[in-house]
Write a protein that binds this DNA or RNA. Sequence first.
DNA 1: CTAATTTGTGATAATTCTATGAAATTGAAA
DNA 2: TTTCAATTTCATAGAATTATCACAAATTAG
Lengths: 226, 226
Amino acid sequence: MNPVNVLIIDDEEDMRNLVQMYLENSGFHCVHASDGAEGLKKMQEQDFDLVILDIMMPFEDGFAVCSKIRTLSQVPIILLSAKGEEWDKVRGLQLGGDDYIVKPFSPGELVARIHALLRRTSVIKNEEDAITLGKINIDKKGRKVHVEGENVPLTLKEFELLVFLVEHRGQALSREQLLEFVWGMDYHGSLRTVDTHIKTLRMKLGTGDYIQTIWGVGYKFEVPAT
Amino acid sequence: MNPVNVLIIDDEEDMRNLVQMYLENSGFHCVHASDGAEGLKKMQEQDFDLVILDIMMPFEDGFAVCSKIRTLSQVPIILLSAKGEEWDKVRGLQLGGDDYIVKPFSPGELVARIHALLRRTSVIKNEEDAITLGKINIDKKGRKVHVEGENVPLTLKEFELLVFLVEHRGQALSREQLLEFVWGMDYHGSLRTVDTHIKTLRMKLGTGDYIQTIWGVGYKFEVPAT
DNA sequence: CTAATTTGTGATAATTCTATGAAATTGAAA
DNA sequence: TTTCAATTTCATAGAATTATCACAAATTAG
């Protein structure tokens, strides 16, 4: 899963940081620009999946920047403005803005709009919240796992390990890989730790042989042939 | 899950059949109309979850039909057009269309847009005034909560926290998320604050175990299985 | 078959996280 | 300003989770 790159163009540093904080919490990667010229320069250096553009800026306003961006790229643009007038909205959309948010906005609204826009422009890969594999059902948002309809409580690490295995099902994963991705790259504990958690996972998932040992390599999740 | 009913209004029979084929493959149920008048008639006979409306039609164009539908209902509308001009897009959206697809479109795009739109509008529909979950009844407009018919006075933060949890029921929410969305994006207080309010909420909601602790993650609202 | 290597297991120590009550602070109403 | 409820912070006990170790079991190679 590659990150979604967002370019934030706003003259106010506080607003840039605020937006960045929200987006990064939602898994986006952000780059700043304090005016249109800088923004356009960054766009030539790097590809972005989304631009968030303030309308009210000194020197060159957002409408002008929006038009210029459109001559370069079809990247989705979200316009920010303190003005709520319909006139501005229409003008922004006519100039190629894809959506329009009026300040002050809630973090939820911003993120929801971004997701909707990316979905519309089909940048984002539709990540599933729930998945069923054999007798196992995993609800990622709800952090619940059911086996044959029965709720099976998993601890934090067990759940994360299972999700990682499932998201890479069919692949043999080394203990080092599992430690790196599930525990974190800064973790340098014993490889035995993985074994222990695999053990309890196997136990909790019941008979089904979902997690296979690849001798000398590591582990692999696979739905056994019926 | 009851089927999603879609009304397709298009003068070209081929296009109606094509769209129908796409949608029925994705589990939607379709009804046809060949012009605006017929479409409006069908809407009076039956409730639809979505309308797909062609803009280019003889007699009465899609914009006119869109406006008329809006006088009847807030049903989500997707506009279809062969014209890609921005002007149309803006006009359609102003007239109450919820999304806009330019022909020719791929089946995948159509279905993805429909799903996105239904998701978006169900969020809006979600802003109901009152909701009952288990023994709990929440009156958002009146800012009142009843448990087993008994009025339970909640303070401001308690109420907002409960509403947010309820609107995201089934999802594990981190303390950071709760602080951001309930307390506001500029709030940077202690995470323990959340714990405290969860505690009083649990106490006031009585036995029922609605708010679960997701160890290492945060909290989750869920109506316990009976 | 035997030795070498890798993996599984259970117990326990160490760590991390949460619940809780009380104190401190804030804020709104009187 | 005073008062009082609401909100936030803080400290800590206790609960839950996790890491590690030692050894048993299993697998592979020679």
